[in-house]
Design a protein around this nucleic acid. Structure first.
Lengths: 229, 229
DNA sequence: GTCTATAGGGGGATAGAC
DNA sequence: GTCTATCCCCCTATAGAC
């Protein structure tokens, strides 16, 4: 019972293969073997995490021979590190791009973060849990390597927040509460989805509709929260 | 690099052992072997998840022989299922108890959920990611088994929410948005902790202080959000 | 109930043919 | 570059002594 969720997995694989076939038909794609392995690895690692993933799963998913995985990437661990780095980097870069923009207002930033992440995670719903559980397990150091940290710490977002506090437009002075709130409202529903679906019957379509609603709701809510005392 | 976080792990084990020793000294405790294994299993499974946990880790943590684990629990999987069930059950029961209470107001429920979960997760910070990633991996069916689902669906919380909407006290009519917001504001900071610590240097003590602040802030924020449009 | 020793199998990695 | 066959370690589980 614990390790087998085959039906779900097969379903997932099939839908993925359909996509590949489709893209090939459209002649958009003639992926190299190396790219095929990376795409498959990303998929499987994101879904199962490092330990539960077998290199055989990745090979099968990629439609290649197991030996090729080691030929291109030396080891499971090296392949994982690449996927992990790219995943975190993409995720953080998106945030950094928005938060560093001097031109956009704080309100606009909230809108963009909510909207971007809801779209991104709707497409790849496994990313948050994958990232956060694997960071905890084995890649604490990886975050330090990202060049994004410095730019985020001194980002336009923090300056704008500070100014808004000084102007009395925001009550709570700690900008981390602001970020926790924004990310919590945006990302948590995806992470807690099985729990929430357990509490109230809720199918995937209804869930996705709610997430789309939240793109507009979150900015309104954040605005109200920040003035509350 | 990926699999070794030994220093952190050893530190964790040591602090745990100190607690055990202390409790023994205080004569509060003469745990049976079975209980010792369960306590250790809970600790290790919560920290590493099912796949990354070796039965040897659990045996070592419990200070017992590896064979005893199988003697008492037949298999790693059976032991895991017990821990998983108890973890989810405790977590959900806490919520159910609060949400089902006919006597407490909606405001009081928000206060209690925030306060209870912040205390609970501060004590056992691995619970949220453990639960949510293992549910995703292999225990989707487990949620269905919990008798709590029915009682939650018809809980006082949902009735009170409906009434508040009818009275115009709450704008957003979907109670799941309300729950997502409450749980997101309460639980997400713990899950996103490494990320948030990456964005701004923040030590554990500062983090815990922020969480204590949030016990009071979340009810205020929720109140403001629900009236916003 | 608790231990030692070991069976048995799974999974990462590689040798070597093509 | 790609495949087949295989090595070998590690981990779960059990047999059997005490």
């Amino acid at each position: 019972m614990v390790k087998s969720k085959n039906t779900l997995y097969i379903c997932f694989v099939e839908s993925y293969l359909r996509k590949i076939v489709k893209r090939k038909e459209e002649k958009e794609l003639s992926t190299t073997t190396e790219e095929k392995i990376k795409i498959a690895a990303r998929l499987v690692f994101h879904k199962k995490g490092y330990s539960a993933t077998r290199t055989r799963d990745i090979a099968e998913e990629a439609g290649i021979n197991l030996a090729l995985l080691n030929y291109y990437f030396r080891s499971k661990e090296k392949l994982f590190d690449i996927i992990m780095f790219e995943t975190i980097f993409d995720f953080m870069q998106n945030m950094a791009r928005v938060l560093n923009d001097e031109k956009s207002s704080l309100e606009k930033k909230v809108e963009l973060i909510a909207s971007n992440y809801i779209d991104l995670i709707t497409k790849e719903p496994n990313i948050p849990i994958f990232m956060l559980s694997e960071i905890r397990n084995n890649a604490e150091g990886l975050l330090e390597k990202l060049p994004l940290k410095q730019s985020l710490m001194n980002s336009a977002f923090f300056k704008q927040h500070q100014k808004a506090v000084a102007d009395g437009k925001i009550i709570e002075p700690n900008p981390l509460h602001f970020l926790m709130n924004l990310l919590g409202l945006t990302i948590f529903p995806f992470i807690g989805k099985p729990l929430l679906q357990g509490i109230r019957g809720l199918n995937d379509k209804q869930f996705n509709n709610m997430m789309q609603e939240r793109k507009k709701l979150i900015p309104v809510w954040i605005k109200a929260m920040m003035k509350a005392k």
